[in-house]
């Protein structure tokens, strides 16, 4: 599906993540900034990828600012951001 506009979901509180998504330049770019990057960096990227592919998103910039969110939280924030970004005004 096509990202129509920039959108964000989540917060910068501990245990949460803020995920921002916007239309890309023809491919998927994910940038992860996490307080637990050393321990969970790869798992975070994998979780975000999973949600993006569920919604068949292949062209977007995604920025994950993670404050130690567990996987179910990350995926929820990602899904919310996608749904918001897919909505036409």
């Amino acid at each position: 599906m096509e990202i129509k506009k920039a959108a964000a979901a989540g917060t910068m509180e501990s245990n949460d993540a803020m995920i921002m998504i916007e239309p890309g330049d023809g491919e998927l770019e994910i940038f992860v900034d996490s307080v637990v990057a050393r321990q969970f960096g790869k798992q975070i990227e994998r979780a975000v990828m999973e949600v993006l592919s569920q919604y068949e998103i292949e062209d977007a910039h995604v920025l994950v600012r993670d404050k130690g969110a567990v996987e179910c939280t990350l995926k929820a924030r990602c899904e919310t951001a996608i749904l918001r970004a897919l909505k036409e005004d």
């Binding site: 996987e71 939280t73 929820a76 924030r77 919310t80 749904l83």
Partner: peptide, 15 residues
């Protein structure tokens, strides 16, 4: 409301 709905759904399933 949209964010909470999805978060609660994921939390109940995962936790």
């Amino acid at each position: 409301k949209d964010a909470a709905r999805i978060l609660v759904r994921n939390a109940v399933r995962a936790l």
